[in-house]
Design a protein around this nucleic acid. Sequence first.
DNA 1: GGCCAGGACACCA
DNA 2: TGGTGTCATGGC
Length: 214
Amino acid sequence: MDRGSNRVLALYRKLETQYGPQYGNKVWPRKQRRAGITPASPCWWPAETQYEIVVGALLTQNTSWNNVEKAIANLKAAGKLSPEAILKTRNTKLETLIRPSGFYRQKAERLKLLTKAYSRVLREKRIPTREELLAVKGVGKETADSILLYAYGLPHFVIDAYTRRFCSHHRLFLSKEYDDYKRFFERSLPRDAGLYGEYHALIVRWGKKAKMNL
DNA sequence: GGCCAGGACACCA
DNA sequence: TGGTGTCATGGC
């Protein structure tokens, strides 16, 4: 932990008091992760399986969650929300199903690439590294960290537009670099995936509320 | 009808 | 390294 962590923690407690728990800290227990079991979770990131979180992380790029939900519902209804089904589906079909999430041509292609990487590490019974995820075309830093945190329960703080806005608004930190923000939060907080997830969820909640009040 | 959303990438200087 | 264009839908 670093200097300034008191302020970061104080803001967390303030958000928690204001908005209550977002269940962003519902990460898969280690035992279940090892066994490949991913139980239904009342997480702020609604998903029934680990793979659904991975799919959501990609589809939500520059897209409202509302539209992502429509795309995921389409995939579910078509029985395509599994790595095997996605890999067997033609790109044109995939494009039709995920169309509501926008950028559907590139997302269909990238969803397949990500699914291939996901299946590979699953077969090898291990967790992907950040570098491995970043090597997949279409997976940037935010998407990689979202997957590591929310799908695998690893302590990677997610930096998104809301997080940057939050930092600027509270004069916490200012930079242009994603990794600077990530380091700032990770040095200011105890290394705890549950806390990271909950904090990020609260920041998003704050961001949406702040926008409504503009 | 315009703006924005839980980004990433290619291309250029 | 930094700036800009592109990808696209749906809600407000």
